[in-house]
Design a protein around this nucleic acid. Structure first.
Lengths: 191, 191
DNA sequence: TTCCCTACCTAACGATCGTTAGGGTCCATT
DNA sequence: AATGGACCCTAACGATCGTTAGGTAGGGAA
């Protein structure tokens, strides 16, 4: 892949995250590249394709994050590392991640279907960790793992709205993990 | 307020939520109203004003939700009811809530500032509940209430992406509440 | 030297954008 | 009968939209 093309998708991710897909014009992108807007079509077929490429890169980044979690660890430890991986991708590639989380919905047709499949697969991989934790130990045996996954992924996804690039996401992920596992109830006040 | 005007803001909320603010044209709005696009300007000054009105309605709805939580209850109970209120607003006014949560960022100038102030105030009201829980009992005395609030509000906000109108949000809120308070760790596996 | 590829240019296309001006119709109130 | 307000129309404005066609400059490979 040529240098110029990858620079263009980088700028696209930045602008789509900042101004939204529909709020970003081809002219904006051309200006960011220091080029006339017609010149962009040497690199892309359409604006929609650009969105697709950024969204696809985002999906790949999040999946790659989960891939770093070793298989043989205890389930709860894998959940902790999965949270770390998710937040790390978010902080290190915030603009691409923002497109993955928020702007993907402007995809149309096959691209949209393909994206949704990848996104569902990512959520399923996450969900499997909680099921594993319930079945193999670490988590409560009566765990509602669908709700548990929802809670964890909600926290993980919403972070794109407030996470600052360069933050210590490992420490933050561990704090979230502790909350999710142990809760926040006071010791002296049972149910 | 005239019937037509409020119908227009209703349609605006619906379309902004569905297609995004920049993805919705004045022509789309006019078509939804069964009217020529120029005719809309008898009711509004600009498209931006319309976004502002929907966002403001959203802020009012969420604040009104928190207002229903009685003051004299135990802190943890207030947190449970606050979660219920938030999810109820979400489910009952999903389109307005979506604008409140996602589309507000296309506001500009004073409207944007005013919105952000209301939003911050809402988060502060939420945060106060967790601080109260730590100080007055119910939550752990060593609670990191900033992170706790973040976790709860993340779950509450992200719900706009998957919540279906008409869902039993009270039961769902209680499930989230139980998770947040008691965690998901298994009894046989202490830290 | 010739050839091709990458990269960008200029110039324009038809469509659509948000917005405005001026006029018209209906109806309730006076 | 006259008034005024709510509501909508037509027609157009200048700007901007995404996209295309055809041409040019430079550099590395043949």
């Amino acid at each position: 892949m040529s240098t110029r093309k990858s620079e263009l998708t980088r700028q696209a991710a930045r602008l789509f995250a900042e101004k939204g897909y529909h709020g970003t014009s081809i002219g904006d992108l051309a200006e960011a590249m220091g080029v006339q807007k017609g010149s962009l079509y040497a690199h892309i077929d359409s604006k929609a394709d650009l969105l697709w490429e950024v969204a696809r890169d985002g999906a790949a980044a999040f999946h790659a994050g989960l891939d770093t979690v070793p298989d043989e660890l205890p389930p709860t430890e894998k959940i902790r590392l999965a949270l770390r991986a998710h937040l790390r991708v978010l902080a290190e590639q915030l603009e691409i991640a923002t497109v993955f989380i928020r702007e993907w919905r402007y995809l149309e047709g096959e691209h949209r279907d393909e994206f949704l499949a990848e996104r569902r697969r990512y959520e399923d991989r996450f969900r499997a960790l909680f099921r594993e934790g319930r079945e193999l130990g670490g988590l409560r045996t009566d765990l509602d793992d669908a709700t548990a996954t929802l809670l964890a992924l909600s926290a993980a996804n919403w972070a794109y709205t407030w996470l600052r690039p360069g933050a210590d996401t490992d420490e933050l992920a561990d704090r979230f993990f502790t909350f999710l596992l142990d809760g926040m109830r006071g010791y002296a006040t049972p149910a």
